[in-house]
Design a protein around this nucleic acid. Structure first.
Length: 113
DNA sequence: CCTGTGACATAAG
DNA sequence: CCTTATGCCACAG
């Protein structure tokens, strides 16, 4: 099908929208789940458009290191961190603590679902 | 079609 | 720890 390309953003939104409360995932994980592990940047970019979509909690998507690299795209300076902390996620210096504890793996969570 | 870009990831200095 | 460089790929103009 030729509509896979266009579905890329939709896929990103779909996965991001399924991130449960108090959980986080990485751009690379989503990208890989979508079959485009090298397109992690596209995931982030998709999140850029996600800012217009309330169903997509972009603040739950961080980089591989659990670092809030995308916080600069949020309204305030530490809004992203506050949102995560509000969900029970420990965030210190823009970095998620105990990432493994909060990490939400689309493969594990969705495939086994 | 070509160029620029980007919220990543990894490597190297 | 930091910055710089490269790859990678899809979208926008």
């Amino acid at each position: 099908m030729s509509n896979d390309n266009q579905n890329f953003f939709q896929k990103v939104y779909a996965v991001a929208a399924q991130i449960p409360y108090g959980r986080v995932t990485s751009y690379g994980a989503i990208a890989k789940y979508l079959g485009a592990a090298r397109s992690a940047r596209m995931v982030g970019w998709a999140m850029n458009g996600a800012g217009s979509i309330a169903d997509v909690p972009a603040h739950r998507v961080v980089n591989k290191a659990g670092l809030l690299t995308g916080k600069h795209h949020f309204d305030g300076t530490n809004l992203m961190q506050q949102l995560l902390e509000s969900e029970g996620v420990e965030v210190v210096d823009n970095q998620i603590q105990n990432l493994e504890k909060y990490f939400w793996d689309p493969f594990k969570e969705l495939e086994e679902a």
